[in-house]
């Protein structure tokens, strides 16, 4: 697969994301700058973690207006896979590509730890190599990791159909920092 990894001003997990894809998984990676405007030939686009625009105003609020985000919206609208990790997830929420928003952690602390995630559905894009009931050990690090959305949105995102759509990036991304 050919991946695009976008760097926004203030992204700081872009190098690690590209390293994980290229060196650990042997995938082909194109590094993109937030002022790029084309995503031609890519299979998947990844928005990495970090502190785009210094987290000013709200996390991801400014990055959503970067020139590349128009191409990301088109890419997603075409049914292709967009992954947001941490700040990348916040940018996707701010851009309206994912429902809901993330606010400050309940305890106000920045969390850098590991969490256990149980696989409830092994028929999604992210979990199809797992078995139902598997427990994954996932590292997290974030200050604004508390996901909020209204009741109707939460109910919608809990359906199997939604989980199996490309938009389910959310469930993994929101948990991985």
């Amino acid at each position: 697969m050919k991946w695009g990894v976008i760097t926004f001003p203030g992204s700081n997990d872009d190098v690690q994301a590209a390293y994980a894809l290229e060196t650990l998984l042997g995938e082909s990676v194109v590094r993109l700058w937030h002022k790029d405007t084309a995503l031609d030939g890519l299979d998947c686009v990844l928005l990495p973690g970090g502190f785009s625009y210094g987290d000013y105003l709200r996390c991801g609020a400014m990055a959503r207006f970067s020139p590349i985000m128009r191409a990301v919206a088109d890419f997603a609208a075409a049914g292709r896979v967009v992954i947001g990790i941490c700040n990348g997830f916040q940018i996707l929420c701010e851009a309206g590509l994912l429902p809901g928003a993330r606010i400050r952690n309940r305890g106000l602390s920045f969390l850098c730890t590991r969490v256990h995630l149980r696989v409830d559905d092994a028929d999604t894009l992210f979990t199809n190599r797992c078995r139902r009931g598997d427990v994954l050990d996932i590292p997290i690090k974030h200050g604004d990791g508390c996901y909020v959305a209204d009741g109707a949105t939460l109910r919608r995102t809990r359906t199997a159909r939604w989980r199996r759509s490309p938009a389910s990036a959310m469930r993994v991304a929101m948990s991985s920092g």
């Binding site: 105003l57 400014m62 928003a101």
Partner: peptide, 8 residues
């Protein structure tokens, strides 16, 4: 468009 996020 920018200053407030209507979700929260």
């Amino acid at each position: 468009r920018l200053l407030a996020n209507g979700v929260i």
